[in-house]
């Protein structure tokens, strides 16, 4: 049994629903804010995710970051070294999708060369009638970037856990991998003859 800790940087354009999504995830669906309250800095939310079929868990420290450009620089200083990234757009805004690569680059610049598992989230799936970004297009870009793709609706409480579970699982898989590498590395054959 192990409890891992991961710093999850949550980014994307203003008003795509980052705060709604993370609050929905952390409050188990009891807390959807209809009125838009802009995030002006970084809000920290913490939630533990158990990894299915293991006794392990990942504690996610979610850095819900302001999408408005005015705050970007100040926010970046608060990220520290990211463990995983969650990039959000809304399916009803092509502009917000086009910004995703810029957001991803921004977070990657803080990684000092460390691997960064991530997800791409198309939020507001309830607004399907106003869809501007096709699922296949988003999926393809995510695949190119090595991200998992999920569509969510914070409003309808649809699928809000999925992106975070994906991140926790990816981080956990990375831990298992490193653990085995180190185990192999430290095994000294001369001691076992």
């Amino acid at each position: 049994m192990v409890k891992l800790r991961a710093r999850c940087i949550l980014v994307g354009d203003a008003a795509v629903g980052k705060s709604a999504l993370s609050q929905m995830f952390c409050s188990d669906g009891s807390h959807f804010q209809k009125n838009y309250t802009m995030t002006a800095g970084v809000e920290l939310l913490v939630k533990s995710m158990s990894i299915p079929e293991t006794n392990d868990s990942v504690e996610l420290y979610i850095f819900d970051t302001a999408g408005r450009e005015t705050f970007a620089e100040t926010c970046e200083k608060m990220w520290g070294q990211p463990s995983v990234v969650c990039v959000v757009f809304e399916i009803s805004s092509l502009d917000s999708f086009n910004s995703c690569s810029r957001w991803l680059e921004r977070v990657r610049a803080h990684c000092n060369g460390l691997q960064l598992p991530g997800v791409l989230v198309g939020n507001k799936s309830d607004l399907a009638s106003r869809r501007e970004v096709e699922t296949a297009v988003a999926q393809e870009w995510a695949r190119e970037q090595g991200l998992q793709y999920h569509e969510t609706s914070a409003k309808e409480m649809e699928n809000c856990d999925a992106p975070f579970l994906s991140l926790a699982q990816a981080f956990h898989a990375m831990y298992q991998d490193r653990r085995q590498i180190i185990q192999r590395l430290s095994w000294d054959p001369t001691d076992h003859q």
């Binding site: 049994m1 192990v2 409890k3 891992l4 800790r5 991961a6 710093r7 990942v58 420290y61 070294q81 463990s83 981080f171 831990y175 653990r179 180190i182 430290s186 095994w187 000294d188 001691d191």
Partner: peptide, 22 residues
């Protein structure tokens, strides 16, 4: 629990403590 901190001071190079993130 499989890699507790005591492993750093048991004199054995094959056993170790592993950090778990951040």
């Amino acid at each position: 629990e499989n890699y507790p901190p005591e492993r750093m001071i048991d004199g054995n190079m094959e056993t170790f403590w592993l950090s778990t993130g951040i």
